[in-house]
Design a binder for these strands. Structure first.
Lengths: 367, 367
DNA sequence: GCTCAACCTTGAAACGATTCACATCTGCTG
DNA sequence: CAGCAGATGTGAATCGTTTCAAGGTTGAGC
């Protein structure tokens, strides 16, 4: 805990305080001006003030200006609660992601925000930490606030809560998760396809023995990506039992990748010439191990990652990786909510295709 | 735009649709239950329902249970707007950062969120993109919503808007920016001190000629960090004119750092033995250039960065860097808002001290 | 001069929770 | 048994906006 008040800030404060003659102990709470106040000052009825605010074209120019002047003078600001209470409308949507500190969701959040800004909506953003209770609490808060819709990356087993929200007539779009119900909209990325892209790329380079550094099969992503790898091998006429070594990762980070790669290199029998890592952190660790052990990349071992994190392109050997359109997912999900609201169309279920970004870790001549 | 609907999702939808007999064209809007409905069902008055909700201890056990049952049955959810309109209270605060997609602010946001969660507050989070207009728009939305307080990383020239918000009795805490007024609370990090830490560390290692890869002096951070460097040199009896080469960066990213380092190595005259980079991206580029040109790190050139981004520790030569307590800043700012609300105490102005994380890029034997 | 439409404006009735002054009931004290 | 306190419950008033039926003006057309 290293915090301190700066000396400069404090002395500046004292200087000001001395200069100021505080009349009252504390400034009066200064209640906000209401439409009534504005109406009084402008000499019109509250209805007219409301019209100036919401349908200015229905108000005579003179009156309109008078009201506007009064609004200025009183620094009137609409009370969103009263507005919503009466009109039922609220320009807010809620989003729950697993963790806003994770760049993955952060990019998504940015997409959501940008789409909302177009329609002057505000965003309530929360992290569930994959804790269904915490998620439920946030969903309830959203509902109390009467949000127009909810975007959610469901944490394990929380889908029911979202379905019941949908039943109470709140629009819901699932993020990064395909919808189990036709009523529920969703935006996801095709993980099977992403892994297939990576695998296909390595096979195209002439590799015939691959390693796959994979995480626990309790994660949907790991299962899907494995499916993608296996399907691709089969479709190219290769037998996974021969062409593939799958190494389980202790942890889904750089150290896990490092350890797994060392295990792979110590393996008896013919060494694979290419490695597909289930994410970029893992690939980073694998690259580190390869460098430490003097294995040339991509010459002796090609490496492909997944996620295309920001530093993938900045590494000593830039990492080939599968890029997921997170920003676009967020943007699209928000767009579905805003466009679809109140319409009769069935819920859309979109799946985006990921994209392979080829760099130097898998192809010698690439960037 | 590569999007597609999955075949599986569609066939699943058709299957369900066939099974379902849709009675009405569209489910009735199903108005939410209100306290009145609950009161009616439980056979009590609305006042009692409100009491069960807000002061359950004032209600007899039997009645309380009856009301709770009714709430359950009707799936009653409070209407936050009505609640706020009457009671004036709202458990929401707004935050504007420059860009939520930036890990820097993201970590801060996470700190804010975690503190708010303790008090069941919700967060409205927005990115200003350093656009004062966009920021002003968000601040107005916050004000309309009647938020309890606002946390803001001010964009250039937007402080006035924040001050006027403060005048209208909305609590404001400035983030990552020292407050210009005693009335305005703030939480910042000491950039001068951070640069002094880095510089002191390099001098401690015996270096006497330093390079400083710095960004444009229109950024406060760059100015402050430069001050820290210069002050430290002076306080150790070194003449900056001799001991320091400052290289301006074209761009504040890896490529800028790469180019600047190449320029530095091409410099005539004695080569510095240590480089301080104004941020980690720049340092990453510098390290890349050093490796490409065969200069040993830290043997021939020690490198220190700033920000301690997530990958600093994962590089081939792990990067020594200055870590700023972003999470703690966010947490503390939110805490100030929640604790201070309505109290009479003067606004706090806190400045956190950054921390030097020593790794292999500046000390051979370090991690 | 009458009619009619177009245009403005009005003001009271919502919206749904909270609050608070007031009723009612119970049991206890002196 | 009057008096009183404490516990429990009531319901009308209130918050600040939007909505909408209805009223008032104006001017054109006949």
């Amino acid at each position: 805990m290293t915090s301190k008040s700066t000396a400069t800030a404090e002395s500046a404060e004292e200087a000001r305080r001395a200069r100021r003659a505080r009349p009252a102990k504390r400034a009066r709470p200064a209640k906000r001006a209401s439409v009534t106040d504005v109406a009084k000052l402008a000499g019109v009825s509250v209805g007219t003030v409301s019209n100036v605010l919401n349908r200015p074209e229905h108000v005579a120019a003179g009156t309109r200006e008078r009201v506007r002047a009064a609004i200025q003078e009183l620094a009137f600001v609409r009370n969103a609660s009263a507005r919503q209470l009466r009109s039922g409308e609220i320009k807010t949507i809620g989003a729950v992601v697993l963790d806003i500190a994770n760049p993955f969701f952060t990019e998504m959040a940015r997409g959501i925000e940008d789409r909302l800004a177009q329609d002057d909506f505000t965003l309530m953003l929360c992290s569930s930490d994959e804790n269904p209770e915490r998620e439920a609490r946030y969903l309830r808060l959203f509902e109390e606030h009467g949000v127009q819709g909810v975007l959610a990356v469901p944490s394990h087993g929380s889908i029911d809560a979202l379905i019941s929200l949908r039943k109470r007539n709140i629009d819901v779009v699932l993020l990064d998760h395909t919808s189990p119900l036709p009523d529920l909209a969703s935006v996801a990325v095709d993980d099977v396809g992403g892994a297939a892209l990576a695998t296909g790329h390595l096979l195209d380079q002439g590799h015939t023995r691959l390693a796959f550094l994979n995480g626990p099969l309790t994660l949907r992503q790991c299962v899907d990506r494995r499916d993608g790898v296996v399907q691709t091998l089969l479709s190219r006429g290769l037998d996974p039992a021969e062409a593939l070594i799958e190494i389980p990762l202790e942890t889904l980070n750089a150290d896990g990748g490092d350890a797994a790669m060392r295990a792979l290199l110590a393996w008896p029998g013919p060494r694979p010439t290419a490695t597909f890592c289930v994410n970029d952190l893992t690939a980073l660790g694998a690259l580190r191990a390869l460098r430490d052990l003097g294995v040339a990349v991509p010459g002796e071992m090609a490496v492909v990652g997944y996620d295309d994190v920001n530093f993938a392109s900045m590494l000593a050997t830039p990492l080939t990786s599968v890029r997921q359109p997170m920003y676009k997912m967020g943007w699209t999900a928000a767009d579905m909510l805003l466009r679809r609201h109140g319409s009769d169309e069935p819920a859309e279920q979109i799946e985006f295709a990921p994209e392979l970004v080829v760099r130097g870790s898998s192809v010698a001549e690439a960037g």
